[in-house]
Design a binder for these strands. Structure first.
Lengths: 230, 230
DNA sequence: CTGAAGATTTAACCTTAATTAACCGAGCTT
DNA sequence: AAGCTCGGTTAATTAAGGTTAAATCTTCAG
């Protein structure tokens, strides 16, 4: 099945990487543009199926870009990203042709949900199956991220939403580093003190659930992040 | 088939976006005007098939606008939107040439129903067939959203209006997140405390009806929304 | 116009996810 | 080794949502 092409215009490199990774691993083909001018060029070249535009960018701001894109293709869905959340911004975004408006910080899942709903509305009926199956086997355990069930050698548990996403993230990077900051932004949309502490608590939950498995271990790399050994 | 053109005059940007999206995705071609003056200009330019006018707007209020429009075209359906719900306002609305009157907050579906009924009355006979069929099969169940009937493995139930829309929304996003806020705005027109609680009650209804189906489950994602697993 | 049935909302009480707080220990820094 | 920061862990708190029942609003037959 052909991948859906996303044009993503964002000048903040750290955030850009996270979102890029998130979208890629959800099966989208992402073109990242680091400023508005580049974005416009990439748009003409790549003919994306959906655009995600940061408002504040060097060279050309998101509104102007959107208006240009809209003129060239009246039927492409556009999502704005913005740090500001003032009503006039929303109006502005709307006038220039945007279809949805996400205020930072946002989590990847929030963005994915909006994208899917817009794509559906604009008649892109993808949904490749791989994006729907979210099952992971590791050692004698199994996580079904859709139903939020974790099976270990001693039993089956129902996980909460955030526990599930966190474990899924660890599994996607199994035997590899999951950066703390990366996880925080993926799940909470921002890296703040309390979100960090909250994640620590979830980590403790997961460790408790998995401590029956001798071959599985969540290591922590001080100052960096975590590594799931399995 | 040619799209039906709607002139929508509304100065409240957040609502405007929601309604605009809702109408667009139902197959209408929408012209949004952010004040009464602009609306009048757009009316002359675009020759819409139906007008939806907010009462309170800068530059020119909805009544005055309606009267002008009515003078120019005696046969166009006009729907008023208003925060106030006093009888004299309704009278005023009808006097100035309106054909229907909706008080805020209203849900998109309510508006769609009124529009369709007015359009039919005024002889616009569009409505492509695909938009009319609202049947969903899932596992051993079946929902017909038009007749509001739900068939499960143990029997057939008549659902209420809101139960139906809620289940339909869940089904449209099956195995995916249905954002709580999104559902509230779709069904009730706004996201308030009591609407939220009301939705919870409907959710309990649906869960009760579906609890005979072992493979169907409505999961809740705290702080985010719901997910229908099937 | 009235009352009954059904739909929806409001209320009350309860469960649990998620956040915040508090306290602790391991490792890095100087 | 003292001091500091990061993260582990557990407990307390907050707030979202589940559930059930009562109140209210609608509709429609009689």
């Amino acid at each position: 099945m052909k991948k859906i092409k996303v044009l993503y215009a964002e000048d903040e490199p750290f955030l850009a990487r996270i979102v890029f990774d998130g979208l890629s691993s959800s099966g989208y083909e992402v073109n990242l543009a680091l400023d508005g001018q580049l974005a416009w060029m990439q748009f003409q070249e790549n003919k994306p199926d959906i655009c995600i535009l940061d408002i504040m960018m060097p060279q050309k701001d998101g509104y102007t870009l959107a208006a240009e894109i809209r003129k060239s293709d009246p039927n492409i869905p556009i999502i704005f990203l913005s740090a500001k959340a003032l009503t006039e911004d929303v109006v502005m975004g709307f006038k220039s042709g945007g279809n949805d408006y996400l205020k930072k910080p946002f989590s990847i899942d929030e963005l994915l949900v909006r994208m899917e709903s817009l794509l559906k509305r604009f008649g892109h009926t993808q949904k490749d199956e791989t994006a729907m199956v979210r099952k992971y086997e590791f050692r004698s355990c199994e996580l079904d991220a859709l139903t939020q069930k974790l099976k270990t050698s001693v039993g089956e548990y129902s996980l909460s939403y955030k526990e599930t996403i966190l474990l899924e993230l660890l599994l996607k990077n199994r035997n590899n580093i999951l950066e703390r900051e990366h996880a925080l932004i993926k799940i909470w949309g921002e890296d703040s003190f309390y979100n960090g502490r909250s994640m620590d608590v979830f980590m403790a939950h997961l460790r408790k659930l998995l401590k029956t498995e001798p071959e599985i271990q969540i290591m922590s790399l001080r100052g960096v992040g975590y590594k799931l050994i399995c």
